[in-house]
């Protein structure tokens, strides 16, 4: 369980988050939605300790993120980023191998190698294992990064807008992989999404933010209503139900 309690954040004099509290249960796919500047990415970065906590309290499975040693936390929670810094010429195998760093500090054991092989197989990357990242397509690279996070073996996986730059096919593939992680492996996935239809289709729970506050939280049926969406985005859009799916044509 991720417990967020009374968290506020001010960056360079600009208030970003105002007294945010939320409880994100374990074993669910949770989508953060809301307009630009709502504070979704900042909240995610705070949970992942990429930004130091200024006030309030965040715990992940009871571990306070600001006081738990980084290495301990890295075995419970990870955030997936696509920025490789200097390491664009890593091979897929090397990248996925970094997922074992919190466990073995870079000196790979046989067990680590088994995990890496399993992750490569799980994400259908075995054939690409020797390729470098800059020689992959966008979708393949996304998969490699999720495979690394998978290999890290953490119960919690945070993703900041992972669908950016992906076409429909890769977007769907990514969401199915994440769904799979939740359903089969019992992991917890927290994901920032822009497209509310993806959130409607794949999330167990939706947390809606606006102006640095959480304005709604609950299952898609409860949060994605015409009134709720108007409060978030400032205009009315119809919410249709097709089968057991919600469908929201927001682009009239």
């Amino acid at each position: 369980m991720i417990a967020i309690d009374g968290v506020s954040l001010t960056l360079q004099g600009t208030p970003i988050l105002h007294d945010v509290s939320a409880t994100l249960p374990k074993g669910e796919l949770i989508a953060l939605i809301g307009p630009n500047g709502a504070g979704k990415s900042s909240l995610l970065s705070l949970v992942a300790r990429l930004i130091p906590l200024q006030s309030g309290r965040i715990t992940v499975d009871g571990l306070p993120v600001d006081r738990t040693p980084g290495r301990r936390l890295a075995r419970t929670l990870t955030i997936m980023r696509q920025d490789t810094g200097l390491a664009a010429r890593l091979t897929v195998r090397e990248l996925v191998g970094f997922g074992r760093f919190p466990h073995s500090r870079g000196r790979l054991t046989d067990e680590d190698r088994r995990h890496i092989a399993a992750a490569l197989a799980e994400f259908d990357l075995t054939e690409l294992a020797g390729r470098t990242l800059d020689a992959l397509s966008g979708g393949q690279r996304q998969r490699a990064f999720v495979a690394m996070a998978f290999c890290q073996g953490t119960d919690y996986l945070l993703l900041d807008e992972p669908l950016n730059n992906l076409d429909m096919m890769y977007g769907r593939q990514m969401m199915r992989i994440l769904r799979h992680l939740v359903d089969r492996q019992g992991r917890t996935v927290v994901i920032v999404l822009h497209d509310i239809n993806y959130a409607a289709a794949y999330a167990d729970r939706i947390v809606a933010m606006k102006d640095g506050r959480i304005i709604a939280s609950g299952p898609p049926d409860a949060v994605l209503t015409t009134d709720g969406l108007e409060a978030m985005y400032g205009y009315r859009m119809p919410v249709h139900r097709i089968g057991d799916r919600l469908f929201i044509p927001h682009h009239d």
Binding site: A48, L50, P69, G70, A74, I79, M80, T84, A87, P102
Partner: peptide, 11 residues
């Protein structure tokens, strides 16, 4: 070399 976000999330 993965950058701050990558390094921090790897502990």
């Amino acid at each position: 070399a993965l950058g701050p976000a990558g390094a921090i999330s790897l502990g």
